[in-house]
Design a protein around this nucleic acid. Sequence first.
DNA 1: CTACATGCTACAGTGGCTGTAGCTTCAAGG
DNA 2: CCTTGAAGCTACAGCCACTGTAGCATGTAG
Lengths: 144, 144
Amino acid sequence: MAEILGIGALAKRAATKVQTIRFYEQEGLMPAPARSEGGQRRYTETHADRLAFIRHARELGFPLDAIRELLKLVDKPDQPCAEVDRVASDVLADVEAKIVRLESLRGELRRMVRQCRHGRVSDCRVIKVLADHTHSHCLSPDHG
Amino acid sequence: MAEILGIGALAKRAATKVQTIRFYEQEGLMPAPARSEGGQRRYTETHADRLAFIRHARELGFPLDAIRELLKLVDKPDQPCAEVDRVASDVLADVEAKIVRLESLRGELRRMVRQCRHGRVSDCRVIKVLADHTHSHCLSPDHG
DNA sequence: CTACATGCTACAGTGGCTGTAGCTTCAAGG
DNA sequence: CCTTGAAGCTACAGCCACTGTAGCATGTAG
């Protein structure tokens, strides 16, 4: 154990790109690792764990700012986890809001596409709906 | 009728920012309008209609490239509208794919937040799930 | 004629990477 | 030991669709 990893090996483990790891370091999400004599980054298991944490959080929709906050909290393990809960709940609320909006868009788009009679552009329902500045075709006009 | 609009008035009508209109002109979505003696943009109803079309399409999730394509098609009203239909269907498919992904994320996040026992950070389920590199807590590990 | 609002261009910043150019270093084979 | 090719380095541009800012010029109402 206590394996030493080059940036490429670390990237492969976390299924990321090399540049992404350097970007996280630049952004303060990953700590600057030791360097070889020639100046190349040398990582440990600790780094691999941290990168896995970041990637998993990203996959779940946490923005980098939220992840930064979580990483700070992880270093204070005796504090209550209310803050952690809040960060996760914020991300959840954000995801839920996005779903609501996208479902509304899906409805409008489906109706548009369904009404298309496959005639000429001049008669196309899709074009007509899009050109309709009054939004009178829309079920809810607040998709803006 | 045939009202002449300054860029501010046009922006207000379309509920956009002034800069957005200039950006659309730069991107070739809005035609360059006439200018006043002093060099300020002077718009007509035609411009207002075109901007409304662009905004409505944007609200429905059409990317600018798709809108560019639609605007070209609008200028050929005698062609069949299969292309229009395809562009709209692509956007719909994109929206549907995003919904599927977000619903999966919502599931993971809800389970994470629900399992939080509101104790110490060191025991926090949210942190544990995120730190779990094996994704064994996840219903579907392919949220990446 | 004087304010003050509006408009102009040009450019930087957003988020989260990704790609490129032009170098240097590393590791394996001969 | 030497070469070769992969991998790494820094620094910067690009993606999308805007948004904001700086530093001026113009337009309009009183």
